[in-house]
């Protein structure tokens, strides 16, 4: 692929990723708000505005450095602040808050896959839609991986008994490195890519 096509793809993907990310973070904030925690609302995170969810290091600098040096793409949004003790039923509610992000992405992907079938295939909109479906599914699947900073771990923590749950939460500071290590060991090929592939086939959106 030539450099121009490569850069265009990167820019389009980055823009669409910001949209998917905003939906994801909004879902966390909204669920927390509905379950009784106002922290996210007061920190201005209960919005679709991407600027509220962008973290200059994790969303901009890190992905750029990673892409330039390794050709890989990894990015993260600013975490939504949650006050555990403000929740009505903290242990159970954390599961819902955690899973709401990926669920929102899957819901958007399903909605867009329906729109995709109604839009003419050769239009630019169609290209944006199928790219956005792909990104949403990828974001949803990736976040369900149960390694602590990711949303899948919130579900695991909510299910585990208290003692194990706190031990599990203790690996959070090393989570990012664990994820990078798992990438190196082929987590993408064995877990994320097959799941992404199956979901795209079910949605009937080619890419």
């Amino acid at each position: 692929m030539n450099l121009f096509a490569h850069m265009t793809t990167f820019v389009v993907f980055f823009g669409l990723l910001i949209i998917a990310m905003s939906v994801h973070e909004f879902a966390h904030s909204w669920t927390a708000y509905k379950l009784g925690d106002m922290t996210a609302k007061y920190s201005g995170r209960l919005t679709f505005n991407p600027l509220a969810h962008i973290d200059i290091f994790w969303t901009v600098i890190l992905p750029l450095l990673f892409f330039i040096t390794t050709g890989l793409f990894i990015a993260a949004a600013k975490p939504v602040p949650i006050n555990y003790w403000a929740l009505k039923n903290p242990k159970r509610d954390m599961i819902w808050i955690g899973i709401s992000g990926p669920l929102a992405n899957f819901a958007l992907a399903i909605l867009l896959s329906v729109v995709f079938k109604a839009v003419p295939l050769d239009s630019f909109v169609s290209y944006l839609i199928r790219s956005l479906v792909y990104i949403n599914v990828m974001l949803g699947v990736f976040n369900l991986v149960p390694i602590p900073p990711l949303d899948g771990s919130r579900v695991v923590m909510g299910i585990l008994p208290d003692e194990l749950s706190s031990k599990y939460a203790a690996i959070e500071p090393y989570g990012f490195f664990i994820i990078i290590m798992l990438f190196g060991l082929g987590m993408l090929d064995r877990i994320i890519w097959p799941a992404l592939n199956s979901i795209m086939r079910i949605l009937g959106v080619p890419f």
Partner: peptide, 21 residues
Amino acid sequence: VNADNINLRSDSSVTSEVISI
């Protein structure tokens, strides 16, 4: 080909590498 920006891939899956567009 009936649309623009179509990925030509190295395998029959949406996660295989893109050869060209």
